[in-house]
Design a protein around this nucleic acid. Structure first.
Lengths: 219, 219
DNA sequence: CGTTTCATTGAGTGCGATCAAGCCGTGTGG
DNA sequence: CCACACGGCTTGATCGCACTCAATGAAACG
């Protein structure tokens, strides 16, 4: 894990949208190796992170070891926002990954630029809520097939382009969708057999019939 | 549905915590009858609501009619906060219910009191996110029995006291927990048979062995 | 090339859904 | 006051989807 502080005059930073610049010009950069922990559950939550490159997952474990993935974060996404003083999930790098972070408590000393960041963080919190609500519907009322279809569509939309590379393995997909790894695998095979998607390798796919896939995903 | 505007000098309002005063001294009051819609999905979302008395549920439907409940709101709770311009759920009164609302866009004209409300709304949004994340874990990784146990504990903690009255019926519980009404009923019967809870009527219960129930709910 | 890790496939099981009665409290009209 | 209907809840029987257990296949790595 390597750290690098950026010396940028905050007063010259232009207003930026989340995902375009966001925290990047203001924060501290760090690199993480595959699987490395960025922060732990129940750790103090005073830092806000943004993905620069790679991808991040947030996870939680039950007392008896069942794992659940809260969300995946890709370049531009903010994560680590909490209502209380502690992180409710742990965050881990999915593969080699670079993030930038700012100390939230320090933003008030940054004047107008601090206000801009505070605002960006609140908007990101509200967007996270919206995503989490969609996720609720997926877990509560969709079949295994619909879950997997939704997931593929979501990630393909997120990255755009024809061919999409999955940054996570089957176990992560399963823990995100509330399924087992075997069921995820079976549904992928089935969707491919039906000609809705095509897998070039187990982490590379292309959507062949977007309309049909979206109809399935809608539930 | 009756509306009543309160004439209170905003400059005299003392700082208040969410749930103690919150929006109540500043907003417009409304009453709703059982089942009445407070706002609709995809309706413009410029109002923030707080429950004064009674209870509220937020619901969503899939294209083929499956229903999903996002959350229940009780006196003191804020609801209706959205990331985008539209409501993502509809909100309905659970039984006779009174709410108060403020127009979010107007808060900036209220000076210090508007700032206080803005802050309260953001905190409520972050708290809603935390609740929704707990709900995710429940839907994704818990058995029917654990779901129902979690639900009873959550609502009993929310209201305190020995005897708890459920403001919602079995169908609402089922749609919140991602189960069917029959499964909810069976699990309630089972929990009662095991001596963990006792139902006096179908909407009134008491927790008999809180530790055991909590252990079940934890998963 | 052997080892390890991850993904797929198959067989069998079980949990929760579905379908179908029955039960019970509540309200209504005779 | 009882007869009846209605809606919400419970219970029973059966079904099917997703889980479990197990084996095989396919990459990645030393």
């Amino acid at each position: 894990m390597t750290t690098q502080r950026l010396n940028i005059d905050l007063s010259t930073v232009t207003p930026a949208q989340i995902g375009e610049a966001g925290l990047i010009p203001c924060g501290v950069r760090m690199r993480f190796a595959a699987g490395e922990e960025i922060y732990a559950q129940e750790e103090e939550a005073d830092l806000i992170y943004q993905v620069v490159s790679g991808a991040v997952r947030t996870t939680r474990l039950t007392s008896d070891g069942r794992r659940h993935i809260g969300d995946f974060y890709y370049p531009g996404d903010l994560f680590g926002m909490e209502a209380g003083p502690e992180h409710r999930y742990s965050a881990e790098a999915l593969g080699e990954c670079e993030v930038v972070f700012v100390k939230r408590a320090a933003l008030k000393h940054y004047g107008a630029d601090g206000d801009r960041l505070e605002r960006i963080i609140w908007v990101a919190t509200a967007q996270q809520l919206a995503r989490t609500q969609d996720h609720l519907m997926l877990l509560g009322r969709k079949s295994a097939c619909e879950k997997v279809a939704s997931f593929l569509l979501d990630i393909a939309n997120r990255f755009g382009g024809d061919l999409t590379t999955l940054p996570m393995g089957r176990q992560d997909m399963a823990d995100y969708l509330g399924l087992t790894i075997e069921t995820v695998s079976r549904m992928l095979t089935q969707l491919q057999a039906e000609g809705l998607v095509e897998f070039r390798a187990c982490r590379q796919f292309r959507i062949l019939r977007r309309g049909a896939l979206a109809r399935l995903a809608a539930g």
